[in-house]
């Protein structure tokens, strides 16, 4: 199933896009699910700020170490992947 037809929680999608837009100085509407963060112009500091923003917004912890970005744990290959990972982490939270 392609990313474009996957269903995301609209609230999570909206908030994640806003956070990324804030760091990339873009309009949230310009951010597409298939976009890669580097291609959006996000540098390493912007990335850790995005992760922080997402963690604070959703009350979750994202496993990420800048030294081992390829390590499994949190897929950041594109915006849609991040949203999917956030949804998983939010769903895993105790009610």
């Amino acid at each position: 199933m392609g990313l474009d037809v996957m269903q995301y929680d609209p609230q999570i999608e909206k908030r994640v896009k806003e956070i990324i837009a804030e760091q990339t100085m873009l309009d949230p509407a310009e951010i597409r699910l298939e976009d890669d963060l580097v291609a959006l112009g996000l540098d390493s500091l912007g990335l850790v700020e995005c992760i922080f923003g997402i963690e604070e917004s959703f009350g979750i912890s994202i496993p990420f170490n800048a030294n081992t970005p390829g390590e499994p744990g949190f897929d950041m290959s594109c915006v849609g992947a991040i949203i999917a990972e956030v949804e998983k982490l939010v769903a895993r939270q105790p009610a």
Partner: peptide
């Protein structure tokens, strides 16, 4: 911690598996 550059196991400079 906030910078996400700290290792959780140990310091391995120049080693391929270094983690911060």
């Amino acid at each position: 911690e906030g910078l996400r550059v700290m290792s959780r196991d140990t310091c391995r400079p120049f080693s391929r598996d270094r983690s911060g």
